[in-house]
Simulated assay, not measured.
Amino acid sequence: MNSQGVAPQAAYFQRLDTLRFRATEHVGGGWNPAEQHVAPALGLLAHAVEADRDARRDDRLPLARLSYDILGVLPIDAVDIEVTVLRAGRTIELVEARLSHSGRAAVVLRAWLMQEYDTAAVAGTPFARIAKPEEMPEWDPTTLWPGGFIRSVQVRRQQIEPGRASFWLRTDVALIEGERVSATARAVGLLDTANGMTPRATTEQVAFPNLDLTAHLFAAPRGDWLGFDTTASFGANGIGLTHSIIHDADGPIGAVSQCLTVRPRRT
């Protein structure tokens, strides 16, 4: 068992068929523990795109951009995935994946896959590194959020102010029971946590779920820990933005943005 009481062999999804999966208790959401936290579903869709790619070609084009639209909530139940190549190409592809429940689409992913080239001579980024996981204090996200998914992650966080923090996450829970997935799909399954790790206001004051998530990756993630340098902003008009620079053990590897609907709670 890990420190959250989750067995290492636990999984977020169980495969029922080629493109049908059953969500487990470990996907329970923060806004409603009886509904899915969308983070694992995003990783599942990324895995589905990679699996479809590998069935069609042998060059393993990396996922460079993943743009998700979240169309509705998901019960903790069976889900279906459909993958379609929108723009086939030798070096670049645009692929769409849809996750649905009982015939209703809940999440749509459009992913650009791009051929790799040797650009080591010019590689680099001015994005600042964050402190290493061992240099940050442990933090328990269940003090803010309920649900099986939040209980399944380990967090180390440096809070600067409400809406501004850097943190690292990892999980012992597999994305799919009994199956290996890529480091990218596994990392993508954690990205949606960014919006809840350093909120600007309490959930008693406002609800601030995200409607989308767009990730740009210029390097594939390595290691167990995934790092975030996150800023959350609320406008005066009910619209918000959570923006994160994503890190692995070697430094920054990409960026993630989430559009928020910020709704005051009724008193």
Rank of each mutant, 00 (worst) to 15 (best):
S3D: 11
S3R: 15
S3I: 11
V6P: 00
Q9N: 13
A10I: 01
Y12T: 09
F13Q: 09
Q14L: 08
R15Y: 09
D17P: 10
T18W: 14
T18A: 13
A23S: 10
E25W: 09
H26N: 04
H26T: 07
H26F: 06
H26E: 06
N32H: 10
E35K: 09
V38H: 03
A39P: 15
A41K: 01
L42N: 05
L42K: 00
G43S: 05
L44V: 05
A46Q: 09
A48C: 10
V49G: 02
E50W: 03
D58N: 14
R60Y: 04
P62M: 05
R65G: 06
R65P: 03
L71D: 13
G72T: 06
L74K: 02
P75A: 10
I76H: 04
I76T: 11
A78E: 14
D80T: 12
I81C: 10
E82W: 00
L86W: 08
L86M: 07
R87K: 14
R90A: 05
T91W: 01
T91L: 04
I92Q: 14
L94P: 00
V95F: 06
S102L: 12
R104L: 07
A105S: 13
A105I: 08
A106M: 13
V108N: 02
L109Y: 05
W112F: 13
M114R: 14
M114P: 04
Q115N: 11
E116W: 00
T119Q: 12
A121R: 14
P126Q: 02
F127S: 12
A128D: 02
A128K: 12
R129E: 15
I130K: 01
A131P: 14
P133T: 05
E134H: 11
W139I: 08
G147D: 12
F149L: 10
I150F: 15
S152L: 00
S152D: 06
R156W: 14
Q158W: 13
Q159V: 00
I160Y: 12
R164C: 03
W168I: 12
R170Y: 04
T171Y: 11
L175W: 07
E179H: 10
R180Y: 00
V181W: 03
V181H: 03
A185C: 12
R186M: 14
A187P: 10
G189A: 05
G189C: 06
L191Y: 11
D192M: 02
T193A: 11
T193G: 04
A194K: 03
M197W: 05
E204A: 06
F208C: 02
N210W: 04
N210I: 03
L217I: 02
F218E: 02
A220V: 08
A220L: 09
P221T: 03
R222L: 08
R222W: 02
W225L: 09
D229T: 04
T230N: 09
T231D: 12
N237W: 05
T242V: 06
T242D: 02
A249S: 15
A249W: 03
D250S: 06
D250F: 00
G254F: 04
A255I: 10
V256P: 00
V256I: 08
S257K: 05
T261A: 07
V262R: 03
R263Y: 02
R263E: 07
P264Q: 15
R265Q: 13
R266H: 13
T267N: 04
